[in-house]
Design a protein around this nucleic acid. Structure first.
Length: 275
DNA sequence: ATGCCTCCCAAAGGGAGA
């Protein structure tokens, strides 16, 4: 038996995936659940309301589902593989009561013989165009996330902040960094805010496990970006010290970008010791 | 290149994404 079962001392697999419409991608999603058997999945860009999420298919694959949906845009979810439990679900990122965009859901994952882990699914604002109100909204969201991460980390429960950050951390995370120079994903302000988040003591799991250049998680649908491997790394799993101590591996499920009707993002998965 | 592609809503083409 693999994954976080009843015995513990195995690994817990946690994946993040921007599916670009849960209704369009439910087939790819259930195939991924069946083949990768992640214990927790953080989804972004559901692009539908809670009642339209194809819950039955996901539950039939063996998962509990908690969502924060929104009509047409945004939307995030946490999937937890039974018999693991998901409690203390929080919807929305604190720090701005006026923010109605569905971009954050967190919960506590626990099971018999499995050390509890707090997991968040995050869909950070894109922030373009930089001259619009969208860019300061993005930067403010990153600052709210930093403050909330600090508060959560005080509890010293292993914490995984996973999602589509819409931030290219470093030039080696883009095939053509010069093309992104003025973009909200790569602007110095965005990168600095991301670094401030890391400076709270978080570890970029994929960077830690695979420091090479050219590890991407997104390829634009346009201009043959996928066949030309013109990708960027913007989907991240950030680990608190207690989670980083348990880190075994981090990997990108790149093959899913080659399917028919793919998302433009692919899953990223970490394995953490579960006991 | 204000594009290129995909998805949304809504019933055509505009908005959003990154």
């Amino acid at each position: 038996m693999t994954g976080a079962g009843l015995k513990g001392r195995g690994v817990m697999r946690i994946s993040t995936w921007n599916v670009n419409s849960i209704k369009q991608r439910v087939g790819h999603l259930t195939a991924f659940l069946g083949e990768a058997k992640p214990d927790v999945v953080c989804l972004q860009e559901l692009k539908c309301q809670d009642e339209s999420v194809p819950r039955a298919e996901i539950e039939a694959a063996g998962y509990r589902v908690e969502t924060l949906g929104q009509k047409a845009y945004n939307g995030v979810a946490l999937l937890v593989r039974r018999p693991l439990a998901l409690t203390e679900v929080r919807r929305g990122l604190p720090g701005d009561e006026a923010d109605v965009q569905a971009r954050y859901i967190e919960g506590l994952v626990a099971g018999e013989g499995v050390a509890p882990v707090r997991v968040a699914s995050i869909y950070l604002p894109n922030g373009n165009p930089v001259a619009s109100e969208k860019f300061p909204y993005k930067l403010a969201f990153l600052e709210r996330l930093r403050r909330h991460a600090r508060a959560l980390m005080d509890a010293e429960v292993p914490l995984v902040l996973a999602g589509d950050y819409n931030v290219i951390p470093d030039p080696e995370d883009a095939a053509d960094p010069e093309a992104w120079r003025e973009d909200a994903l790569f602007r110095p302000e965005s990168r600095a805010a991301f670094r401030s988040l890391l400076a709270e003591g978080l570890t970029d799991a994929l960077r830690a496990c695979d420091p090479r250049a050219g590890v991407y998680t997104f390829w634009d649908y346009q201009a043959g970006c996928w066949p030309r491997n013109q990708g960027i790394r913007i989907d991240h799993l950030l680990l608190s010290p207690q989670a980083a101590d348990r880190l075994v591996s981090a990997s990108v499920q790149k093959h899913l970008r080659g399917l028919e009707k793919p998302s433009d993002h692919v899953p990223v998965t970490v394995e953490l010791l579960d006991g």
